[in-house]
């Protein structure tokens, strides 16, 4: 039986993604596909792999582990997080399901990031239109610089473009000159 996509294209039975527009067609294809990246060759690996199947390099141990995670189990995995702009204490809740793009609005180039730092002096603070992205994976939040002009820093360490870095409670992020603090919403008990 054909699978009809929202875009109107009729896909063959058994297809996972729409052949015409790429939209997921099944429950499992709609989920975020989590694989483990090799730091040496960049190849994806099965989530449980300990060595890269492509180049044989040892894969990093789980980058982020909550304190006492085994005791707190699922509760800690579902913790929400927020970003606080240091300058004016504005708070932005981070979505657990959806990645967010941080940058500044530019109507000419049609750039509308999820978290717009224009109001926080992003423009003269050297924030790029698409500066960094933050997302959650396996219970941890990650940040990745999007090859911004003035770089992204975590605790004064410059991030390489497109290299994901796990975030910890209280980390200080700097995008250009704009400073933000990453905190878990229930950080009081962490």
């Amino acid at each position: 039986m054909a699978i009809q996509c929202d875009c109107g294209f009729s896909n063959a039975d058994g297809a996972y993604f729409c052949e015409s527009c790429g939209q997921p067609l099944t429950e499992d294809s709609a989920l975020h596909v989590a694989v483990r990246a090799c730091k040496v060759c960049g190849a994806p690996n099965m989530p449980a792999a300990d060595r890269c199947a492509q180049c044989g390099a040892v894969l990093p141990v789980v980058i982020f582990r909550e304190k006492n995670e085994s005791k707190r189990g699922a509760k800690s995995r579902n913790r929400a997080a927020k970003l606080i702009v240091t300058e004016d204490n504005s708070i932005y809740e981070l979505s657990a399901e959806k990645e967010i793009i941080i940058g500044r609005t530019d109507t000419q180039s049609q750039s509308y990031p999820d978290l717009d730092l224009t109001l926080h002096h992003g423009d003269d603070g050297g924030v790029s239109r698409i500066h960094a992205r933050i997302w959650r994976e396996n219970g941890a939040y990650f940040i990745e610089d999007q090859r911004s002009t003035n770089n992204t820093y975590v605790n004064n360490q410059r991030l390489e473009p497109f290299h994901p870095t796990a975030l910890r409670n209280g980390d200080i992020l700097r995008l250009g000159k704009v400073e933000l603090v990453f905190e878990y919403v229930d950080s009081a008990d962490s």
């Binding site: 996972y16 052949e19 099944t26 499992d28 994806p44 099965m46």
Partner: peptide, 21 residues
């Protein structure tokens, strides 16, 4: 129910489909 597809295969299927489009 549709059986589980291993994540790595799904990862490849998604990206090949995207590349083709």
């Amino acid at each position: 129910k549709r059986p589980h597809t291993d994540p790595l295969s799904l990862y490849y299927i998604q990206r090949v489909n995207a590349a083709r489009i």
